[in-house]
Nucleic acid binder design. Structure first.
Lengths: 220, 220
DNA sequence: ACGGCGTTGTAATCGCTATGTCATCGCCGG
DNA sequence: CCGGCGATGACATAGCGATTACAACGCCGT
């Protein structure tokens, strides 16, 4: 499955790293920003399903950042982390346009549940993709071809999902790397090529994924 | 496909060369300027998708250069490299009109991700070019003539793309060399002529590309 | 804790073709 | 008839994508 993409904006690097590790364990692609400015940039430049935002930030404060994100064309959901358990703090956060809040200290499992809930609300993508005799069901993480189920590994599913939602457009290997892996992926890896190979094997004949010489793949 | 074009302005030649090599490996056409004045010149004379700009430059300083670029009719995006990790430095850079920043030291993979992200935001060239019975679909990297698909190699597609977007104007061989290859291309090569030849073959009859005696090609 | 299985990434190799070089050809103008 | 420019054909090769083999890792059941 194309992984969920989450941005964490948190100045406390211990917390930030713990969160990102925890989310990555769930198969989520995580980017981290250690201050508000960096967070704003990443939020503008990339596309995330959910942005986890510490309200108490140095430099650009969390509130201002939240407003900027909400007022941008971005479709990301915002989960705000508030320090105290004060009701008023929470209310303020929501008034700024956050979609949910969580007050510290919190259970990681609760954060995870909320992230998932928000991602589900993400206006993004149709739940089932179809292309030729291929069917990909996002919710069930399952793929079938000509009514035969095809078991796929996670990265394989991710690549297939990106290609299918591209609707025939060419997707470069770099784009696949960015969307299925995360920003720290080694740009010189051939992991994409290998995964495409395995995917093709599992999908069988006739070939579904076409190679466009000069850098790209597509499903016609 | 006409490759992405990037200009690196960086006085430290070790850094500059490492970056340019890395980006070239990704199929990007890279020009390099080792000081601000040279950078400004290239930025004015050529067209780049992204300009990677070291803030700390001898001669013309990075800030001034950034302003000049932003205030010029150029549509390039600017990615500024800042030395320290100071938040204020970053903010200043963005205030000057840079589109993104990155503080040293940085991961090459992160630089690459940001360059791609910025290029994506580059003002949208029309997705489909048409000229007579020729159709070039940028997203699909495909060309068809009279509804028959014509498979093209990378340079061939690049040349065709430049010629078609010229809308009937004459394009010299040198211009093609600059835009489809990069500045390190041997100026005495006849690669352009050869590629035009092969392109003409694949496109078939009647001829599409016209030769203007005295140095140029066009699609009427 | 241990061992097996499935997944993923790395690195080396293979085969092909897109691309550049060079030599030659043909046309046009002086 | 010759000089120059662009077109063309033949050839060599660099580079890219496909493929293989292997190593590392994580997950699960015992």
């Amino acid at each position: 499955m194309e992984p969920m993409r989450v941005l964490i904006v948190e100045d406390n690097s211990v917390v930030a790293d713990a969160l990102s590790e925890g989310l990555r364990d769930q198969g989520i692609a995580v980017d981290v920003a250690y201050d508000g400015t960096a967070g704003l940039n990443k939020a503008m430049v990339n596309t995330y399903d959910v942005i986890v935002l510490d309200r108490d930030l140095p430099g650009l404060c969390g509130d201002a950042l939240c407003e900027q994100i909400v007022n941008s064309p971005s479709t990301s959901r915002v989960l705000m982390l508030t320090a105290a358990g004060l009701v008023e703090e929470r209310v303020e956060g929501l008034n700024l346009g956050a979609d949910d809040y969580l007050s510290k200290p919190f259970d990681f499992s609760e954060l995870l549940a909320r992230v998932h809930a928000l991602a589900r609300r993400s206006p993004s993508t149709p739940p089932v993709l179809t292309r030729g005799d291929l069917i990909l069901d996002r919710a069930r993480r399952s793929v079938s071809r000509a009514n035969h189920p095809v078991p796929l590994a996670r990265k394989e599913l991710g690549i297939l999902e990106v290609l299918m939602s591209a609707e025939g457009a060419v997707v470069t290997a770099e784009q696949l790397l960015e969307r299925v892996w995360d920003e720290h992926a080694d740009p010189f890896t051939n992991a994409v090529a290998v995964t495409i190979l395995r995917l093709r094997r599992k999908l069988g004949e006739p070939p579904v994924i076409e190679t466009i010489a000069g850098g790209g793949y597509r499903i016609p």
